[in-house]
Amino acid sequence: MTEIQRYAAFTADPGGGNPAGIVLDARGLSDVEMLTIAAEVGYSETAFIVSASGPYRVRYFSPEIEVPFCGHATIATAVALGPGEHVFTTNAGEVPITVDGSGRATLTSVPASVADLDPADLGALLEALRYSGSDLDGSLPPKVAYAGAHHPVIALATRSGLAGLDYDVDALKALMGARDWTTIQLVHRAADDTFDVRNPFPVGGVYEDPATGAAAAALGAYLRELKVVPEDAEVTIRQGHDMGRPSRITVTLIPGDDRVRVSGTAVPITG
């Protein structure tokens, strides 16, 4: 029988953060079996280690699809492996992770990039999200950011606009599937170095992610590209509050490096 561990990532409370399934020995499991397990677990992602030792070959499945990279499941899996230095070989590339003795992990993303969002895609995206141009923060233009997976970054002018998320699931899912977008990174700038975010994830069979490490890394790349924060900034991302699963994600930019560091704690879910 396949052993499945469950951890909550980007929190010190098992009732907070983003739950992740973890299979530390997935050797011999087929794609169909991994997808079936992820659907049965029901979390936004389950991580599967499909190699015997490090560098660990890791794959990530949501209840409906495989994703190239998942930050919260990476943090959770590394914490489950224990303190030290780990390297995960993902579909997006190699991701090194450091875990300290307190259960805090830091991953370093693959090289990140930022691209323009096609105006037609922006229009379709806003329609599916039931937002209009007047809801947007004009100082933070829409873009598509990548740090292992692609995430449109849509900045909202008010916190209430973020709190009022109510989107057309079918329309957004179809658009995301056509454009290979993993989640939508909806953000509101609460302070110079603090952002409140929400992440719709209908392509994975999940309405919303309570903590999204891959999107956090992508947001770090976006903030650096637009020079919104200093090149050596440390940014706090608050997510999950609107879902009753608060999380804290720390994003650190590396001067002279196109990668992004993402840090957080993870704890086992028991019972």
Rank of each mutant, 00 (worst) to 15 (best):
residue 146 Y to L: 08
residue 230 P to F: 04
residue 12 A to V: 14
residue 13 D to V: 02
residue 236 T to V: 14
residue 56 Y to H: 10
residue 249 I to D: 01
residue 228 V to D: 07
residue 20 A to N: 03
residue 56 Y to G: 12
residue 84 G to V: 11
residue 130 R to S: 08
residue 61 F to G: 01
residue 144 V to G: 08
residue 117 L to F: 08
residue 62 S to M: 15
residue 190 A to H: 15
residue 31 D to E: 14
residue 165 L to G: 06
residue 206 V to S: 05
residue 225 E to Q: 10
residue 128 A to S: 01
residue 215 A to Q: 10
residue 246 P to G: 06
residue 10 F to L: 06
residue 171 A to D: 03
residue 45 E to S: 08
residue 201 F to D: 02
residue 32 V to D: 11
residue 46 T to N: 07
residue 232 D to C: 04
residue 4 I to C: 04
residue 104 R to F: 11
residue 206 V to I: 08
residue 257 D to Y: 13
residue 222 Y to E: 01
residue 216 A to V: 11
residue 51 S to P: 04
residue 99 V to I: 05
residue 198 R to F: 07
residue 157 A to N: 03
residue 31 D to R: 14
residue 184 I to H: 05
residue 152 P to K: 06
residue 68 P to S: 04
residue 65 I to Y: 15
residue 156 L to S: 05
residue 181 W to Q: 04
residue 219 L to G: 01
residue 81 L to F: 04
residue 77 T to D: 00
residue 268 P to A: 08
residue 207 Y to K: 10
residue 158 T to K: 03
residue 91 N to H: 14
residue 27 R to K: 02
residue 158 T to V: 02
residue 248 R to F: 12
residue 30 S to T: 11
residue 172 L to M: 00
residue 243 M to N: 13
residue 264 G to K: 02
residue 106 T to H: 09
residue 167 Y to V: 00
residue 110 V to Y: 11
residue 111 P to A: 06
residue 20 A to D: 01
residue 80 A to K: 01
residue 116 D to C: 13
residue 114 V to A: 02
residue 119 P to D: 15
residue 145 A to I: 06
residue 152 P to G: 07
residue 27 R to E: 01
residue 32 V to K: 15
residue 203 V to A: 09
residue 176 M to T: 12
residue 268 P to Q: 10
residue 53 S to W: 09
residue 13 D to M: 03
residue 243 M to D: 12
residue 67 V to F: 12
residue 3 E to P: 08
residue 72 H to W: 05
residue 151 H to P: 00
residue 98 T to S: 09
residue 118 D to F: 07
residue 99 V to Y: 04
residue 252 T to D: 02
residue 137 D to W: 04
residue 83 P to R: 13
